[in-house]
Computed example of a mutant assay.
Amino acid sequence: MNPQPTAEDKAATVIQCAFRQHLARRELARRRQERREYQDEMEKLQKEAYLALVRREQEAARRQREKEEAEERARREELQRRRRLLEAAFEGDVGEIRQVLKEVEQVMTREGVGFDNDGKARRLQRRVAIVECEDSHGNTPLSEAAAGGQATAIQLLAELGANPNTKGAFGRTPLYRAAFGGHLEAVEVLLKIGADPRVYADDGSTPEQL
């Protein structure tokens, strides 16, 4: 037969229950605190991640904007060089023609184009491209030089790779324009560099007929 618990036993049991409840409340409070700290930390990290994402997007947008602005500046500068080249060719300003070509070389150097075989090929391609540029009527610098009767400019542009048989406004070749303007020396130079006097213009006439 089990003895009845004494008052001391009951008091001890009450104390033990109270102590366990106290420990349980402390553990619950600790866990709640950890949970709040975890949630706060996660919220902080989410905010930091969001801000980092916004900064990356802003930086990417800035770089894209700067790239587009640089490309637009380069496009305007290229158009300006072409206008200068066309005007210099018509006026026979050989110094300006050489200056424009020098600027093109400098641009390619800034772009990182070297002087190895590949770099030389790219430079030649770029040089020929600007020498063969066209105005709004399809006339090239060589054609403009022919129209202006500028024999020296014609010879220089030909040495740089210009085609003497391009067709511009009204289907007229450089030789046609030189003949139309009565520029005999220009006609002679054009014939020497391979201009064809038999090429028809849009109206059916040829430089030879002129």
Rank of each mutant, 00 (worst) to 15 (best):
L28W: 01
H183F: 15
L51D: 07
R20P: 00
Q4W: 07
V131E: 00
P164R: 02
G92W: 03
L184M: 10
T140K: 02
R122Y: 03
N117G: 10
T109A: 13
G194N: 04
L124I: 09
G181I: 07
G95Y: 05
L190I: 11
E159R: 11
P164Q: 03
R172T: 00
G194W: 00
G171M: 05
V54E: 12
R35V: 05
R76H: 13
L184Q: 15
D202F: 05
V107C: 02
G168L: 01
E37I: 01
N163C: 12
E8W: 09
I130Q: 05
G171K: 08
I97D: 04
E105T: 14
E8R: 08
F90M: 10
R198S: 15
Q80D: 06
L191C: 08
R63H: 13
N165S: 08
T166I: 10
A153Q: 04
M1G: 15
L157Y: 01
R81K: 11
Q46L: 09
T206L: 12
D202H: 10
Y176I: 02
G194C: 03
A169V: 11
L142S: 09
Q125Y: 08
T173K: 04
D118V: 13
D118S: 10
D118Y: 11
E188Y: 05
R75G: 10
K167T: 06
R56L: 04
L51N: 03
D196L: 02
E144T: 02
A153N: 06
A129S: 09
N117T: 11
H137A: 08
A12W: 08
Q125M: 11
Q39Y: 08
A7K: 11
A179I: 03
D202A: 13
T206D: 08
H22K: 12
T152W: 00
A49M: 05
K67V: 07
A89R: 05
A74F: 06
A169E: 15
Q16I: 11
F90I: 01
A49S: 03
L85G: 01
N163T: 03
L210M: 15
A178Y: 09
Q125L: 15
R127V: 05
E72M: 04
K120G: 11
A24I: 03
G112P: 05
R110E: 14
A18R: 14
L23R: 15
